[in-house]
């Protein structure tokens, strides 16, 4: 038996909007720790890892570990039927082949339940070791989204170069080239507006902008984004989900042969 009651149902709606274009089908894993997911895109270039900790739910009952295969597009269709202020409860029976999403309006005058068929998905779980990254950039998530969107109108790839001086985003295309440099800036009124760059050594990596733009669909989840890089390793783009956990995107770099 599984029953997870999330007061801030809009969080789950935003999570689905953030990942449904990257991943088609995925297993949601439920354990005593929380509600989580790890899934790669069909080309195995990008991976999303989601964690919503048990403590973040108003009620969290998970009698035994359960893995539920869902089509994210169908799940998104159902969650779109929930109001932004609704409380969402996820319910499933052990060994069952459906999951139920229950939506309660804030004043309890409307209660809906939507039952969705589960699917069997071969799980492809990657072991991602804890890594000390050589460059960690924290910046406003909207700024990062703006840069990725702007550069993708010029080129297909972005070179992200981080040094003590700042972080440079560069692209080239048929019509020309573009560079955006963000310097460390901590003298801001609100901490979420700061750009903070922690550097162990300079890092420069090349990525497909198509994926970066897809990751920025998580922008509504957090005011800030953290980009962690080491030379010749996948980048991690992390959006913290307030008091609940995180959504992390991993993207393999493009490397000169």
């Amino acid at each position: 038996m599984l029953e997870l009651r999330l007061l801030q149902g809009s969080l789950l709606k935003k999570v689905l909007e953030a990942i449904k274009d990257l991943v088609t089908d995925a297993n949601f894993d439920c354990s005593a720790t929380g509600f989580s997911l790890q899934a790669m895109d069909s080309s195995h270039v990008a991976l999303v890892a989601l964690l919503l900790r048990a403590e973040g739910f108003e009620h969290y009952r998970c009698d035994r570990n359960l893995s539920m295969g869902m089509n994210l597009n169908n799940m998104s269709k159902m969650l779109k039927c929930a109001g932004n202020d609704d409380i969402i409860t996820i319910k499933a029976d052990d060994g069952g082949d459906t999951v139920t999403f229950m939506f309660e309006s804030p004043n309890q005058d409307k209660i809906s339940d939507f039952e969705m068929k589960l699917m069997d998905i071969d799980s492809e779980h990657l072991g991602i070791p804890e890594t000390e990254y050589e460059a960690i950039i924290r910046m406003p998530s909207q700024e990062f989204a703006r840069i990725c969107r702007d550069l993708s109108t010029i080129g297909d790839t972005v070179v992200i170069s981080a040094s003590k001086e700042g972080v440079k985003f560069s692209t080239k295309g048929d019509i020309g080239s573009a560079n955006v440099v963000c310097r460390q800036n901590t003298s801001v009124d609100k901490p979420e507006d700061a750009t903070v760059i922690e550097i162990q050594q300079p890092v420069s990596l090349t990525f497909a902008l198509r994926y970066m733009n897809s990751f920025t669909k998580a922008t509504p989840l957090s005011n800030t984004v953290t980009v962690s890089m080491s030379n010749e390793l996948p980048v991690v783009v992390e959006y913290k989900i307030a008091e609940m956990g995180y959504i992390r995107f991993y993207l393999a770099p493009k490397i000169e042969e």
Binding site: M40, S43, H44, V45, A46, L47, E124, H125, L126, G127, I128, P129, T157, T206, A208, L233, P234, Y250, A252, P253, K254, I255, E256, E257
Partner: peptide
């Protein structure tokens, strides 16, 4: 031109 790598080249399947 840089070549796109797969994540499997960096992380092992578990």
């Amino acid at each position: 031109t840089p070549v796109q790598n797969d994540l499997n080249e960096f992380y092992a399947m578990v």
